[in-house]
């Protein structure tokens, strides 16, 4: 706000004072929100670290089991067993609110299955297929868990970033500009008052 555009009037000063008070209140609330979000973020970050570690571990183990299954059953056996998989997990998306941020809540149908539910016959396969199927079921469960936590983390980060921008804008731009304008108006009003006083004194002196 350029100072030259400001009308140095008393009503403008009252207006500015109101805006400064509002901005300072908003600044305090946003700062508290930012700090709260950061605290929440660190909580989620801990969970995300665990789930990401778990996901990596399960991915490694699933890949290793696939290598073993290819070794024991051959690509032919693994493909034939893979043909049996028909069910994809049913994912239900809900949402929850963390300090005004809407984050997803992912609910999945049961991924881990018993030997008889997997879709391949028991008598035509070996335990390596069971172990490989189990390790991939665990991997899918881990992916679903990670998806919820990492999306929450990403949304919180976005919100922290935008809150931080607002706080900074209020702290370093809006409030200083308003304060400057207020001071300018105060100064102009004081000056105008002094001029008025001086003028009155001059008139009084001439009359005497």
């Amino acid at each position: 706000m350029a100072l030259r555009d400001i009308k140095p009037t008393r009503s403008e000063l009252i207006n500015l004072k109101k805006r400064i008070a509002l901005s300072e209140r908003g600044y305090k609330i946003l700062k508290m929100k930012r700090d709260g979000l950061i605290l929440e973020f660190f909580k989620v970050l801990e969970q995300a670290k665990d789930t990401r570690g778990d996901l990596n571990e399960r991915y490694e183990s699933a890949q290793a089991m696939m290598a073993v299954a290819n070794t024991v059953e051959g690509a032919i056996g693994v493909k034939a067993a893979a043909f049996s998989v028909q069910e994809v997990p049913d994912i239900k998306l809900a949402s929850k609110n963390i300090m005004g941020v809407v984050v997803p809540e992912i609910e999945s149908s049961k991924v881990r299955k018993g030997l008889n539910e997997r879709g391949y016959g028991i008598l035509g396969t070996t335990s390596v297929i069971d172990e490989t199927a189990l390790s991939f079921e665990e991997l899918v469960e881990s992916i679903i868990r990670s998806a919820e936590i990492e999306t929450t983390m990403k949304k919180l980060l976005d919100e922290i970033e935008s809150t931080k921008r607002r706080v900074n804008a209020l702290e370093f731009k809006v409030i200083p500009e308003l304060t400057e304008a207020r001071d300018f108006i105060k100064m102009r009003l004081d000056e105008m008052e002094r001029e008025e006083l001086f003028r009155l004194k001059k008139i009084k002196a001439r009359n005497v």
Binding site: G114, L115, N116, G121, I122, L123, S127, D130
Partner: peptide
């Protein structure tokens, strides 16, 4: 085959469901 499957179902902790696979 049956003994091997018994161990498989035991490992899966679903021994009671084995009857469909007993030869």
């Amino acid at each position: 085959k049956n003994i091997s499957n018994m161990f498989r179902f035991r490992a899966d902790q679903s021994g009671e469901e084995m009857m469909s696979a007993v030869i």
